[in-house]
Structures are given as C-alpha cells and as structure tokens.
C-alpha cells in the first residue's frame, strides 16, 4: 500500500495552532455528578461542609476534571473539524496534568490551548498530536497545565 493512501492529515504547520480561549464557571452540581460518575465517595467531593472542614473554600475540582471543563465549549470537537481530524478515528493516547493551585466550585477558569507537537508512525497509519491547555482562574493565577495526546488511526 502506498504512502499516499495513508496520507497523514497533519503536518508540522499545525504546531502552534491555537484554539479560541474559553472561560467556564465551575458548577458544584456538575462536580457532584462527576464524583458520582467516577465512584468517588469521599464527602470532600460532594458535601460542602465536609470540604470546608478539610480546609477547602468550596467543593474542589478533582484531578482529572479540568480536562472535562475544557470540553464545556459549544463544540468541544471544533478543533478536530478545523484541523481535518475525523472524530471516529481519534483515540486518546495520553494525558498529563501539572497542578499549581486548587480550583473550586464557583471559580471561573480560562483555558488557552495550543498544538505543541505532531508526529506519525507506521508510514502515517498512526498520527499523534499534543494539545497543551494552560488554565488560569478569575484572579489570573495559574491553576494547571495539561497536555492531551491524540492518536488518529488510519485504515491500512
């Protein structure tokens, strides 16, 4: 099979591509639902009194929920469409968070994303893309960065 049939949809020109900055308020009801969805039973994650007793000012955002908040945009897959990535062929290859400050219910978080790397393997049958998100809160304080590695499977 020729490489042209496996033609990658991504090339180096994609690196540096920035998504539209996005802000979202953290809702405590969603945090409770998320805790339920992942089976988190620690009352700190669903009971405000327990959260305050543990030193939090409100219900805390759990470690992986920042990824979910970034998907609160009207169309969280808009950048796949814009970059020509077919959603059905996308797999999540990896995810890495670095935390700077806790985030809480009631906070308004700002997400700024950028594509930081692309590469391919197996003659383009597998393509990889890293999207970095930088998260700040309503005070402009750094909350976290997270890197999402996307894998695009092409038929062979």
């Amino acid at each position: 099979m020729s490489d042209t049939i496996r033609c990658p949809v991504l090339d180096d020109s994609v690196v540096g591509w920035r998504g539209r900055p996005f802000e979202v308020e953290v809702e405590k009801g969603r945090l409770r639902l998320f805790a339920k969805a992942i089976g988190e039973t620690d009352p700190v994650y669903h009971d405000e009194a327990a959260a305050r007793a543990a030193g939090h000012r409100a219900l805390p955002v759990p470690p992986t929920f920042l990824f979910c908040l970034e998907m609160e945009r009207d169309d969280p897959y808009d950048w796949f469409t814009e970059l020509g990535i077919p959603l059905g062929r996308v797999l999540h290859g990896g995810q890495a968070f670095t935390y700077h400050a806790p985030a809480y219910a009631g906070d308004t978080l700002r997400f700024e994303s950028e594509v930081t790397a692309v590469w391919h393997k197996k003659g383009g049958a597998l393509e990889f893309l890293v999207q970095r998100n930088v998260v700040t809160n309503q005070h402009g304080a750094a909350v976290a960065e997270f890197d999402r590695t996307v894998v695009i499977r092409h038929p062979t």
Partner: peptide, 18 residues
C-alpha cells in the same frame, strides 16, 4: 487511588498513557 492516599493538594503532577 491518589486522592484516597493523600489530600488532592499534595498532587504536583499526574500523567497517564492509554
């Protein structure tokens, strides 16, 4: 597993490969 072991504020970074 992490938040069952330490308060979340102790987690500096967390990465996973699928």
């Amino acid at each position: 597993v992490l938040t069952g072991w330490v308060p979340q504020s102790a987690i500096v970074s967390f990465d996973t490969r699928f």
